[in-house]
Amino acid sequence: MEIKLKYGIDNLLFGMKEQDVIKILGKPDSSYKDEDENVVYVYNSRKLRLTFYKEEDFRLGYMTTSNPIVKLFNTSLISKNWSEVYPILEKNKVKYFESDTIEGILSYFNEENWLFFHLDYNEIIKIELGAVFKEKEDDFDWKF
């Protein structure tokens, strides 16, 4: 599973509809609506959660994974120390991160790529990525 910044993961692209994702991954193990009435698909064996935004005609807008095979810049990320991963990100021009700690979980956020890394005990445990906005606009830059 390769993260493609601003695009998605593998052949899952931001902007896909539910039926497009089902054609690729099959039916989810479970699904639910979040507090904003967005539809969330859960794929247990892939350790992948996909969110379809209600206000965007249920387009795929957000992905969350803790899958140990997920890669970015050809590097596995889950269970790696931040000190191992950050130099790779920086080398690939992903280097401005805000950080926050909630209940012992340290999170790093890169707004340009709408990319989150969540760490526990200094190891990456979860990655989130979202669709980005078009430059100087309030519309999403859908890739599908």
Rank of each mutant, 00 (worst) to 15 (best):
K17F: 05
I24T: 08
I9Q: 11
D141K: 12
I124W: 04
T101E: 15
F144K: 13
K134R: 15
I69Q: 15
K134M: 12
E98F: 09
I78S: 02
K47V: 00
V85H: 03
K91G: 10
K27S: 12
Y53L: 08
K134W: 09
L25F: 06
D141E: 14
E128M: 02
K33H: 11
K126A: 10
D57M: 05
N110T: 09
S79N: 15
F140M: 08
D10Y: 01
I102T: 14
E123F: 03
F116S: 05
D138Q: 12
S66I: 09
K6Y: 04
L106Q: 09
L60R: 03
K6W: 06
G8Q: 01
D141P: 00
Y62P: 01
D29N: 14
N67Q: 13
N92H: 14
E56I: 01
S107L: 04
H118K: 15
K33C: 02
I102E: 10
G104N: 06
E123C: 10
D20Q: 02
S79P: 02
S31F: 04
F116Y: 15
I69P: 00
E123A: 08
I125T: 10
L77Y: 03
T64R: 05
F140R: 08
L5F: 12
T64A: 07
S99N: 14
D10G: 13
T101F: 09
K136A: 09
Y32K: 15
I69N: 15
D57C: 02
E55F: 02
S99T: 11
T65M: 05
D29S: 12
N122S: 15
V85G: 04
M63Q: 05
D120W: 07
G15K: 11
I88V: 14
F109H: 12
I9D: 05
E55N: 09
I9F: 10
F109L: 10
E135I: 10
E135R: 08
S76R: 12
V21S: 01
I24P: 01
I105T: 14
T51I: 01
E55H: 04
K6H: 09
P28F: 01
E135K: 10
E137P: 01
L89Q: 07
S30Q: 10
D120R: 12
I9M: 15
E111T: 07
I22C: 10
L50N: 04
P87Q: 11
I9R: 11
E55Q: 03
K134E: 12
E112V: 10
G61F: 01
F133E: 09
D141W: 13
F140G: 00
E18C: 03
S45C: 03
E2H: 05
V94D: 08
L12W: 00
Y96A: 08
Y43F: 06
E135S: 13
W142D: 05
F58N: 06
E37G: 06
N74C: 04
D120L: 14
Y96R: 11
V21E: 00
F133A: 06
V40R: 01
E111H: 07
L89I: 07
N74Y: 09
H118V: 01
R46I: 02
N74Q: 13
I124A: 06
Y7M: 10
V85Q: 06
A131N: 10
R46N: 05
D34W: 00
K91I: 08
Y86L: 09
W82H: 09
L77N: 03
